[in-house]
Design a protein around this nucleic acid. Structure first.
Lengths: 131, 131
DNA sequence: ACACTTTATGACACTATGAGACACAATCCT
DNA sequence: AGGATTGTGTCTCATAGTGTCATAAAGTGT
C-alpha cells in the first residue's frame, strides 16, 4: 500500500549480496514479487519491482528498431538496467553495477515509494544533508 | 519478460565467436529460440531473435515498392542481414559482419529490449556517455 | 526485564559462467 | 588435389554467483 519508505544501512557479503530489509521484503511480497530490475544512475542504483518497470517498458514498445533516434532512446534505458531476483532473501548486485555506483561493503537503501535506491554509504553521507 | 537488458563486455575467441551471456541466453530460451538474425548498422550490429525479425519484416511489407526512400530502407536492412544460430552456447559473427562493425577481440553487447547490439569496445566507449 | 521470535551478518562449500585453447570439419580458391 | 581460411565441438581454469548455516543483533509480547 504505502510503498518503500525509510533509510537502511546494510552491508554486502563477500559476494556482493545484501539482505533485503524486512520492511522492503514485506512490500515486495504484498504488492509485487521477487523479480526486480536494477538500473544505474551516475552515483547510485534504482531498484524497481518488475511490474513497475514494465510500465516504463510499455512506453517504448512501439518504437522503430531501424530508426536511429528510437534506438538511441531505447538503448539509453536498457543498457543501464539489469534483471535481478531475490534469492534466499538476498539480492546480488552484479559486479558491473556495483562498480558504476561505486559500492563497497557499506551501502544505504533509500525508499522512494514504488522503487528504492542503493547508495554507497560514502556518497550518501555526502548528499543526504546537502540541498 | 523484460527482454535484453544490460551491458556486457565479452571477448571473441580465436575464431570470432563469443559466449552469449547467461542473462541473454535465458531470455532467448524463455521467449524465443536459438535462431537469430544479425544486421549491420553503420557502426554496430543488431541481433534479433528470429521471431522479432519476423515482426519487423511484416512492418516493412507495408512499404511502397515503387517509392525510392522506401526501397532504400528495405534494401539497406535486407542486404546487410545474415542468419545466425547459437551453437554450444556461442554465436559466431561472420567475418564480413565483423569487418563492417570493426570488431576486434573486445566487444560490448548492449541490450535493447527485444533485440541487442554488438559494438566494438572502442566505438562503444566513444558513444556511451555522449548524448 | 525476561524469554522468544525475527532479522541481519559473515562464512563456507558448491555450482555456473566466460575466457581461452586446441583439435577437427567444412568450405573456398586456384 | 592441396593448402588456406572459416567454422564447430569440447575441455580446462579462474572467477562470479548461489544455497545454507551459525552466530549476533534487534524487535515483540507478556
Amino acid at each position: 500500500m504505502s510503498g518503500f519508505l525509510g533509510t537502511y544501512n546494510v552491508s554486502l557479503d563477500d559476494k556482493g549480496r545484501f539482505n533485503v530489509p524486512a520492511k522492503f521484503r514485506a512490500v515486495l511480497e504484498r504488492e509485487y514479487g521477487s523479480h526486480l530490475v536494477v538500473t544505474a544512475m551516475s552515483h547510485y542504483l534504482i531498484v524497481f519491482p518488475q511490474p513497475e518497470w514494465e510500465i516504463n517498458r510499455e512506453r517504448l514498445k512501439g518504437l522503430d528498431p531501424f530508426d536511429k533516434d528510437d534506438r538511441d532512446k531505447k538503448r539509453k534505458i536498457s543498457s543501464r538496467a539489469v534483471e535481478c531476483e531475490i534469492k534466499s532473501g538476498k539480492i546480488l548486485i552484479p559486479g558491473t553495477h556495483r562498480d558504476i555506483a561505486d559500492l563497497d561493503k557499506e551501502v544505504v537503501l533509500v525508499g522512494s515509494f514504488e522503487s528504492f535506491e542503493i547508495w554507497s554509504r560514502k556518497k550518501w553521507d555526502e548528499i543526504k544533508d546537502a540541498e
